[in-house]
Amino acid sequence: MKDLVYLPDVVTLNLCQDTCNGCGMCIQVCPHEVFELSGKKAHIIRRDYCMECGACALNCPVQAVTVKSGVGCAAGIISGILNNSEPTCGCSDSKSTCC
């Protein structure tokens, strides 16, 4: 099946190639094959497939990757606006935290 893709030219993903040390961690953690390693540097090859989960940026040991990560969830954004907070996915939030 063809990969599903969302809106074009919208994600906040950035890769600074000068800083990149070519460790390949971003390639390992990305769930949508956004990166590729060539010439000992990472390259963004499928930008529009990025879902801004933030795994690459969090695991980049030299902070070459940046992205404003968050949940791509309309219900979460609506509840964020209503509660005047960051968008959160509230589907599995429970009031009680005790087991």
Binding site: M51, I77, C91
Partner: peptide, 13 residues
Amino acid sequence: TGSSTYTSLSGVK
């Protein structure tokens, strides 16, 4: 969109 596995925050906004 929240149940899907490929939508980004920027895109949904």
